[in-house]
Amino acid sequence: MFDLNNSSVAETADQAEALLKAPLLDLLHQSADVHRAHHDVTDIQKASLLSVKTGGCPEDCAYCPQSAHHKEVGLQKEHFMNPDAVIQMAQRAKSAGAERFCMGAAWRKVRDGAEFDAVLEMVRGVRGLDMEACVTLGMLQRHQAEALAEAGLTAYNHNLDTGPEFYGEIIGTRTYRDRLETLEHVRVAGMSICCGGIIGMGESLRDRADMLAVLANFTPPPESVPINALIPVKGTPLGHLPRVRAPEIIRMVATARILMPKARVRLSAGRDGFSISDQILCFMAGANSIFYGDELLTAPNSSLSLDKELFETLAAIE
């Protein structure tokens, strides 16, 4: 089990905090050098995300409109999707340019039975399309992680959300240790880990540094690190908070890139609030993946037409 009290975590948190506070142009220069040393900067992966079971989640995550605790949100609860329909949507996503297909279910934890069997069928179907497959289903037991790996799952997403000290301000229905245990099951089963967090929830700069330090001290670090900006949703406890400013997300991306040089750093939720120029700065800082499509589970995302313009701007001029 990962040791949160390991002295190297505190040392890395100090490093991360110093980076997050550094002059922005110096930070960008450093992270861009690290990025180019480990990646082809033109390789920006497009991942599509689908909610296969929406709403009614028993967790109380303060940011999430899918929580059953936040009744004022008024989210329409949707039943578990048919695997054939999900695979068809994956095919459409691939045709639109997506290389990775991610599926999320609003569950506290995975339960054995027909719905988990259907998830395994979805994974096999997506892999059969020659796409990467990722799921986020809540907490896992060891045998369930092994079943997902056997089905061909590329990666399991299970975000830490924030640093361990601030975590209790955001979630009360599961612990930080619960999250780490699920990630351990994923790693032992041989799958890639997709794990990041959210900024803009009222946390301090040190909380952001602490989260990145925990991730960087995994052995090995996550292959995929989503950096999300809070999308405040009316009816959730965090619905009153302001949107994250672009320099904050750029600093997080750059620091994540320096601390985890080999990871895919994913510019994730909240991207619809950033201009094309803001996003290009994130790519310069080290982001090399985006979620692609008009919706992220239940939240808006940058439209396909705007993303077409984004990638045309990035391309060489003929």
Rank of each mutant, 00 (worst) to 15 (best):
A118I: 07
M89F: 11
H240T: 13
E146I: 12
P261N: 09
K46D: 12
T162N: 01
F101K: 05
G163H: 03
T162M: 00
T175V: 01
Q144A: 13
A62D: 12
P23F: 15
N157P: 04
A114R: 15
V86C: 01
L20R: 06
R92G: 06
R208Y: 13
C61Q: 13
V41E: 04
E295F: 08
A133P: 04
A155W: 01
L297N: 12
P247M: 09
L120D: 09
A229N: 03
C61M: 12
M139F: 02
V110L: 03
L259G: 02
R36C: 01
A147F: 02
L241I: 13
W107L: 05
S302H: 07
L205C: 12
A96D: 13
T136C: 08
E146V: 11
M89L: 04
G138N: 09
I250H: 14
G168T: 01
N157W: 11
A37T: 04
R266A: 14
G163D: 06
N228M: 05
V86T: 01
Q144L: 14
E11A: 15
L148A: 04
H69S: 15
F283P: 00
R124G: 11
L129M: 03
N288P: 15
R245V: 12
S277D: 13
L238K: 03
G56E: 15
Y63W: 14
D207N: 14
A256C: 07
D130P: 03
M131T: 00
L25M: 14
I290F: 00
Q45Y: 10
R124D: 06
L24S: 06
P65E: 03
L129V: 02
Q30R: 11
K46Q: 15
E150Q: 13
S204Y: 13
Y167T: 06
I193C: 02
S268M: 05
C64D: 14
M1P: 15
A145R: 00
N217S: 08
L120P: 14
L230M: 07
A209E: 13
E184W: 14
G196H: 05
C282V: 05
T173C: 11
G196A: 08
F218P: 03
E78I: 01
I193V: 05
A256V: 09
N5I: 00
A316H: 09
I198P: 09
C64S: 12
I199K: 01
A98L: 07
Q88M: 10
R92T: 07
L50A: 07
L153G: 00
V34D: 00
T182S: 15
C195G: 10
G152V: 10
D210L: 12
G197L: 02
A90Y: 09
I199P: 02
S48E: 02
H185S: 04
P247N: 14
A18G: 09
Q88D: 11
R243I: 02
R266N: 13
E165M: 08
E59P: 11
L212S: 03
L304E: 14
I199N: 02
V52P: 00
V123H: 05
P226V: 03
V225P: 06
H79V: 10
I171C: 04
G270M: 01
P220E: 08
T12E: 11
R36V: 00
F166T: 10
V73S: 11
I199M: 09
C102G: 05
G113L: 08
M191H: 06
N217K: 07
